[in-house]
């Protein structure tokens, strides 16, 4: 397989649309998806109201902030952000080791 690393970082953003915002809930989610798509790193749907950004640490963190702002601008009530370092199995059989630089 990979000639390529697994993405270093992922940020999953879960949107709770506000029923009181100007835009209807579905439009709020769509606005977030659009912003995610334009934010730079790879963006994929990760659930009915979720988007996952994946890639290098800096670009994902920057993008997560921009997408969060877009969500708030669209009227979303809550944005849950879960940033996860892609954990890799341990080299010696113990769980949860991080891939170090060689």
């Amino acid at each position: 397989m990979p000639g390529h690393n697994r993405d270093e970082l992922t940020a999953e953003l879960k949107i709770t649309p506000s029923p009181r915002a100007e835009q209807p809930p579905q439009a709020q989610v769509e606005a977030v998806m659009r912003a995610a798509g334009e934010a730079g790193p790879a963006a994929h749907e990760a659930g009915p109201d979720s988007v996952v950004l994946s890639g290098g640490r800096e670009e994902v963190l920057d993008a997560a902030r921009r997408v969060t702002e877009a969500a708030l601008d669209a009227g979303a009530k809550t944005v849950e952000v879960r940033v996860e370092a892609q954990e890799e199995s341990g080299r010696f059989g113990e769980a949860g080791g991080r891939r170090g630089s060689p």
Binding site: H4, R6, E12, H44, A46
Partner: peptide
């Protein structure tokens, strides 16, 4: 857990 997976990029439900 996460609803999407992938060897390199988590994009597949």
């Amino acid at each position: 857990g996460r609803k999407v997976y992938g060897m390199e990029t988590p994009d597949q439900p």
